[in-house]
Write a protein that binds this DNA or RNA. Structure first.
Lengths: 182, 182
DNA sequence: CCAGCGTACTGGACAGTGTACAGTTCGTCC
DNA sequence: GGACGAACTGTACACTGTCCAGTACGCTGG
């Protein structure tokens, strides 16, 4: 989206993030460079650095933003079903954005506001299963780790089909929840 | 290790891999480039391509090579203890090579010969717990995914200490094994 | 012993990357 | 209206993985 020169671009952190989302959606992670995002905005690559500290910071923002598509489980639903539903929804979401998965595991990306909200909702459900607050952090981590891990496995175009790994995850989630509740 | 010019370097796939190991040990993953490996061997960067297809292929080899340090569990030991021991040893190994963890999850790296051997030993132990062969593949995947996932979490210099995450992993492994054996 | 062949290797280059530095242009506030 | 600070540009650096063309060497058949 090039501008007529001589005018301000009027960028902002949000605009940069939005452009990054567009570029990522259209060209995937390999196509996401500072230059491509800047090009999308019709702006010099360096201009982004007025609104974003790093490429890393931009990617972190992008990661948390993806989680906005996930609806937190209702506190009133059946806890076991609710937990399974969020994690499977997460798995499905990551299946659509395969190359992001390693990033979630390697970075602070899983610590943004959206991620926090999901975690808090999970703690509520676990409490209704009799898991006290001290232990629930551990269980949440176990659930998330399994979900991200299986998503990563599914992303690596493994010989195992996506459906098989989804079923694996479902079984694993049950083992963890059941084990933790005992 | 520069050579006196005019002589053959006498490279080989193994020599390249060894140099890559050295560079990685000294400078970590960011310092591992085709140029740095070539420099280590006193050779032009392109020379490596006579022995290695890609940087990806080289990294894959490096990944599996790291697993050589892991002793497969004895088939005669207590199955639960044996499984726990391998996975915790893996966690500890990965803790020492933090930046590799995302790669293990994202690539075929966990499918090399060493990885296979470990997987096979785990299947044997699971059989002694009454897990039939069809189901054991799923359990092995669950155990590996949890281990790699927690290692990744520990690698991301999280606020949670390494010891805490190791304990989390230990509990998770137990839940999975117990759940699968039931 | 020597010609020839194939492989190992070099030099140079290309197309990218993230990002720093210096300078210009603009909107805003006193 | 003039100064200030932020936004933005142009240019550049130091890298990256990898390709192409050429050279020099070791080994093998005659």
């Amino acid at each position: 989206m090039p501008r007529t020169p001589g005018q301000r671009a009027g960028l902002s952190r949000e605009a940069v993030l939005a452009a990054a989302k567009t570029v990522f959606a259209e060209r995937g992670l390999p196509g996401l460079s500072m230059r491509s995002v800047a090009g999308e905005l019709g702006v010099a690559p360096n201009a982004l650095y007025s609104h974003v500290a790093d490429k890393d910071a931009l990617v972190d923002a992008l990661l948390d933003d993806q989680l906005a598509a996930l609806a937190p489980p209702s506190p009133d639903a059946d806890p076991v079903a609710g937990l399974r539903a969020v994690m499977l929804a997460t798995f499905d979401l990551l299946g659509r954005h395969a190359d992001l998965v390693p990033l979630y595991l390697a970075r602070q990306g899983a610590r943004g506001p959206h991620a926090r909200a999901l975690g808090a909702a999970m703690v509520v459900l676990l409490a209704r299963l009799g898991v006290d607050e001290a232990a629930s952090a551990r269980v949440v981590r176990a659930l998330i780790v399994s979900t991200l891990g299986f998503a990563a496995l599914a992303a690596a175009d493994a010989p195992l089909g996506n459906a098989e790994l989804r079923a694996d995850l479902e079984a694993t989630l049950d083992w963890i929840v059941r084990g933790a509740a005992a």
